[in-house]
Structures are given as C-alpha cells and as structure tokens.
Design a protein around this nucleic acid. Structure first.
Lengths: 104, 104
DNA sequence: TTACAGCGTAAGCCATGACTAACGGTAAGT
DNA sequence: ACTTACCGTTAGTCATGGCTTACGCTGTAA
C-alpha cells in the first residue's frame, strides 16, 4: 500500500507523467527522452530515478545507453489502492440511496 | 482527462488522502474531520475545496454544518486514465515477450 | 591510450503549495 | 438583540521539491 502511495505521488508531477507516457509508447533511452522534452537531460535522469523507486519503470543497460521501459508493478499497486476506495465509494453511495429512496 | 490529472495531483497530498479515506468510511462535517487530524480546521477547509474542485467530494449544508462525502466522479476519471496506461503497459510487455520468447 | 558518447550525482536556486492566525459571515438558540 | 456554533477566506510564513550547472564515471571507437 505504501508502494501505491509512492507511485501516486510520483505520477503527480507533470514532467514525470509525460516521461511515463512516452515510455508507454515504446522503451527509450535517457537522451532520447530528453530530446522532445522542455527539460535538461539530468532532470530526466532524476525523474527516472524516482519513477524507478516507485516501481513504475525498469532500466536495462545497453552499452553506455540506458533503456527504460514501463514496469507494470507500480501501476498495479495504484489500481489496487484505487479499487479499495472505489468499493467504499459505491458502498457509501448505495447506503445513501437506500436511505433516501428505499426502492426495493 | 484533465480531470483525472487534477484528481491525481489532488490525492498526492498525504493530508488530503487521509481526509479522503475518512470520508470513504462515512460522510462527515468539517469540524468532525479537523478533530482527529493533526492540522487546523481552516487547513481542512482548504483541502476540501481542492478535493471538491477535482470532483472527488461533494458537500451539502445542514444548518451551519457542511457535510462532505465522496464523489465517485473524480475517482472514476482516475481509473479511466490509469486503465489507458495499463493497456499500453501490457501491450508493450506482450510485444517484448513475443520478441524474446516467441512461444506460440 | 586518447577521445568521445551517454548517464548519474551533487550543490544551489527558486517557485509551488501546505499550514496557521485572524477575520467575516450565516444559522440556531436564549 | 445578543451570543454561540460552524464554516470559508485571506495574508503571510516556511518547507518541499523540480530544475540547471558542473563534475565524475563507464563503455566504445580509433
């Protein structure tokens, strides 16, 4: 659950979300990502570090190039965390409607 | 989609997440929430304003008391946004595995 | 080994935003 | 009318975190 929280706060940053989207299309190297982004390469590197810590991406070294791609785990944790509130929300909603309408 | 982004950044704050959790259990007034939280009542009020703007909660006046409860809409937007990447992630994963194993 | 390409890290700056204290405004009770 | 309860808003302070610049490290090519 703490993982989901990390993943959530991680994706809260706009730049990080953009990076995540790009990697969702296809795995990419750091420099590749930096081009086409309004921030410097070190900035991308830092973001990738955070994304990796949240299990949202994985990296693989290919010579001096580091290829990053999406890690489904972080995404899954968020989903799990979200569904828990989704259920609670619907439950509360059902209770409220039952109390108001009582349409059996 | 912009809604989902708002909802996501909104739930990134720990205090706001806690408020959201409390409201998931049962609808509550502002003062009720403030008790049991390590922050002041105005702070809670501000957080509720943000949560409301992200369609994550709804409020209903009951005398001078303002009862807040979860709004499923904001939650739904996040889920929709998330699922889009969930699919992209699995797709990329499948492509990778297919390329590596090719176990038809 | 010399040179270059590709990244990660550290230090420092600056903007965003979370919090408190003080105030104003409305509803209910006496 | 006066008081009290309950809440929203504003102004101002302070910490968090994203960004850049500078530097160091590891491979690859000649």
């Amino acid at each position: 659950m703490a993982y989901a929280v990390n993943a959530l706060t991680t994706l809260a940053d706009p730049t990080r979300r953009t990076i995540f989207e790009r990697l969702a299309e296809r795995p990419q190297a750091v420099g590749e990502l930096a081009n086409g982004l309004p921030v410097s390469r070190p900035a991308v590197s830092q973001h990738l570090k955070v994304l990796k810590a949240a299990s949202l991406v994985t990296d693989r070294a290919e010579g001096t190039r580091h290829i990053y791609r999406i890690d489904p785990r972080g995404l899954g944790e968020i989903r799990k965390w979200l569904d828990q509130f989704w259920d609670a929300s619907l439950e509360a909603f059902a209770a409220e409607i039952e109390k108001t309408e009582s349409t059996t």
